[in-house]
């Protein structure tokens, strides 16, 4: 079982190369507001997270995921559900 802390740490690693503005990454950092990530970059990040954990993150889930913490919660939930 992958715990949330492990998921969060790996998400940070996946975001780092896309963090063009070199913003400090915390649970509360937002993708659009703080990192100014464009929609195409967000979708690349989604694809890499899907491949990392062999899960599906439907595009329609994205509007509710504004912060890194929210993404970690969602991914952790999907990983747990997958079993």
């Amino acid at each position: 079982m992958t715990d949330r802390a492990t998921v969060y740490a790996r998400i940070i690693e996946l975001i780092e190369p896309l963090n063009a503005k070199k913003v400090a990454l915390t649970e509360a950092t937002t993708f659009a507001g703080d990192m100014e990530m464009d929609s195409l970059t967000v979708m690349d990040l989604v694809a890499s997270m899907e491949d990392e954990w062999d899960i599906l993150i439907p595009l329609n889930m994205l509007p509710d995921l504004e912060t890194i913490g929210q993404v970690a919660d969602a991914v952790h939930g999907l990983v747990v559900k997958k079993g």
């Binding site: 979708m43 989604v46 694809a47 599906l56 439907p58 595009l59 329609n60 889930m61």
Partner: peptide
């Protein structure tokens, strides 16, 4: 209202 998945 479907779930949307993107491929490369």
């Amino acid at each position: 209202n479907a779930d949307t998945v993107r491929f490369r």
